[in-house]
């Protein structure tokens, strides 16, 4: 290229124009300072998001198992005669078909693998109230109370209380009680997803077969 042509060239092609090595090194240094922590925080946030997804899935699995146990035959739950309870749970990865293996009143599921996480669901059935026994009464039965109506259509009026109650005796009460002849259960479900704590859900189930 002749000197005359070079003189007509635009500035970037001229000697001394553009970026120097020092500039590039400084730019790379600044970029490294900004990008490296950003990459670190991205991986942290990805971990948090994954953990949240796992927790959400664990909660849904727990709810699904509670619903299964709420609709299982009541007498089998009470007696602890269940062996394998099929679990058909809809997950984002498809339908999971597994089993809840019972041993008496406690159960553990086969591992449910969704993505890279393995979930294990446990269940425990506890009697909150024990059926009342007419011949051997006890205090662990469920007792309901109510006020016997005395108005029109409400049955006979209550008996007249004695005029002077004996000292130390409880006051006459209108409340009647009924002691139930059914065992009533607490269903507890826990989900282990490899996190720091198990997910625990618990509810109460009454016998609706009568």
């Amino acid at each position: 290229m002749s000197r005359a042509i070079r003189a007509k060239c635009p500035a970037p092609f001229k000697k001394g124009a553009g970026v120097s090595l020092v500039e590039i090194l400084m730019a790379l240094f600044i970029l490294a300072i900004a990008v490296l922590p950003a990459i670190g925080s991205f991986s942290t946030f990805y971990g948090v998001a994954t953990r949240q997804m796992e927790q959400e899935m664990a909660l849904k699995l727990g709810e699904a198992v509670v619903n299964v146990l709420m609709t299982t035959t009541y007498s089998e739950l009470v007696k602890g005669t269940l062996t394998n309870l099929p679990l058909n749970i809809q997950t984002p990865s498809g339908t999971f078909a597994g089993t809840l293996n019972f041993s008496g009143s406690s159960a553990t599921s086969t591992p449910i693998i969704i993505g890279k996480t393995s979930y294990i669901v446990g269940a425990q059935i506890t009697k909150v109230f024990v059926a009342q026994d007419t011949y051997n009464p006890h205090n662990n039965a469920l007792e309901f109370s109510w006020l016997p109506p005395k108005g029109p259509g409400g049955g006979p009026p209550p008996p007249v209380p004695p005029p002077v109650p004996p000292v130390g005796a409880p006051p006459p009460s209108m409340i009647a009680t009924y002691s139930c002849h059914d065992d009533l259960l607490c269903i507890q479900v826990s989900v282990d997803y490899g996190g720091p704590a198990l997910f625990k859900l618990a509810t109460f189930r009454a016998d609706m077969t009568r």
């Binding site: 500035a11 600044i30 900004a34």
Partner: peptide, 19 residues
Amino acid sequence: TNNRRGIAIAVVLMFCTAI
């Protein structure tokens, strides 16, 4: 020519701000 010096740092600073 002198005005274009330091443009890389300016671009990188903008990029860092975006990040």
